[in-house]
Amino acid sequence: MNSRFFIYPYCEAGGKRTFSDEQIRGLYRRMVEDGTAGLVFMGSGIDGEDAFLAVMQSPGTHPYVLFVQGLPAGIVWLNRIQYRWAQMHFCTFREVWGRTAVELGRHVNRTLLEMRDSRGRYCLDMLVGILPARNRLAVSYVRKCFGRITGELPRGVYNPQTGQSEKAYIITLTREGIRNESD
């Protein structure tokens, strides 16, 4: 276990949310300040703090706030969970970009793929992401965090700035892939 990194779920526990609405809106503001919101939410309809909050609180969305040495460092959320895989979305904040973001990403991916249910079974066997092919930094980052490009979608993401759909990569992460890379 890496004590530098902490993954905290955003959920309702005992009738109370683990983070306030304002704290979650603040995560979106950080993405805007860092210049990442446009790429993270390209064509998704998430265009402001309230829309982001609504998605994070929607049934079927499982967000996790990421911390490095006690400070907010990003957010990951899972949705479209089916069978034993989920679609994964992520964003790290500027302060941790570089080596720390890669270490954090690897830690998050291991943690999510190692989660077990009450009977000891793995919850997920695979994480799937769809990234705009033109976002080379994100593609490079995900590959460093054990992701594999396993396919292309010729018109996989919509770019509202150009009014055109663009090529996207399908990225997958598996426990076996993480173990092979870690060895």
Rank of each mutant, 00 (worst) to 15 (best):
F67P: 01
F67T: 06
F67W: 12
V68L: 04
V68D: 00
Q69S: 11
Q69D: 15
G70F: 09
L71A: 13
P72C: 11
P72H: 04
A73K: 00
G74N: 01
I75T: 03
W77E: 01
L78E: 01
N79M: 06
R80H: 09
Q82E: 15
Q82V: 12
R84E: 14
R84D: 13
W85V: 10
A86L: 03
A86E: 00
Q87D: 10
Q87A: 09
M88G: 04
M88R: 06
C91L: 05
T92Y: 00
T92C: 01
T92E: 00
R94D: 04
V96T: 02
W97R: 06
W97I: 06
T100A: 07
A101Y: 00
A101G: 05
V102C: 08
E103W: 06
R106S: 10
R106V: 11
R106T: 09
V108E: 03
V108R: 01
R110L: 14
T111P: 05
T111E: 12
L112E: 02
L112S: 04
L113Y: 05
M115F: 06
R116S: 14
S118A: 14
S118Q: 11
R119D: 13
R121Y: 15
C123A: 12
C123D: 07
L124H: 02
D125F: 13
M126D: 08
L127Q: 03
L127E: 04
L127P: 02
G129M: 12
G129N: 11
L131N: 05
P132H: 05
R134P: 04
